[in-house]
Amino acid sequence: MTTIPTPLKPAIRLRGFDAWYGDFQALHSIDMDLPENRVTAFIGPSGCGKSTLLRWINRMNDAIPGARSSGQLEINGHDVLGPATDVVELRRRVGIVFQKPNPFPKSIYDNVAFGARLHMKATKAEMDELVEWSLRKAALWDEVKDRLRSSALGLSGGQQQRLCIARAIAVGPQVLLMDEPCSALDPRSTASIEELMVELRESYTIAIVTHNMQQAARVSDFTAYMFLGKVVEFGATLDIFENPDCQETEDYITGRFG
């Protein structure tokens, strides 16, 4: 598989990227450019390494004993993997949304303000403004504006996931990573998150892992089909879905395999 040249400015650049869990090599020599202000979807069967790849982009794998990587991974020209990289600052620039909504057992307001408070000392008015902006951006403001002080755990699954997105964008990231963000949600909540992703694309570079082919087709601009730790095919979503180069990709997309 070779790198597909894209006319768009690449935000995330991977060259010869390998990753291991102990002795098991989870990713083999990944070369990819994820373009800025676009949604890139990682698809592929379970265990193919798409979540691993996603979690390396903001180094969430650091906490896993035995997890290591080599090769090149850059975000907007900044090295991600090197010892000089401060993961705290990295994660501020690269937000992540997980599969299962995981709001803190705090109020809705405090959930959104949490990340911002980690990095900044702000006045009440500034924080109020930030919280409102983030909740509006995550299309949640109208639903929660009257109960900002009540527990986030009282929200529905879809609302919780949008809250997690609001929480992530409140710290001012450039990149948003989404690890199967809709797989724990009902179809209506899924639709609202998908709509949101398309809007957020204007401001953020988004990478999403999904098991849902239709979702990848609906929301992403680029798609990478991965299998056994390798990128089998990477290109514009339209091309991948309508005219895949590899038979394997076609088999997976059409449901004959996977």
Binding site: N58, R91, G95, I96, N102, F104, F114, G115, L118, R167
Partner: peptide, 15 residues
């Protein structure tokens, strides 16, 4: 304490 909460905090850039 669910590890998802830890991950959420770390993912937001908490030390």
């Amino acid at each position: 304490v669910p590890s998802s909460l830890r991950q959420a905090a770390l993912g937001l850039g908490a030390t």
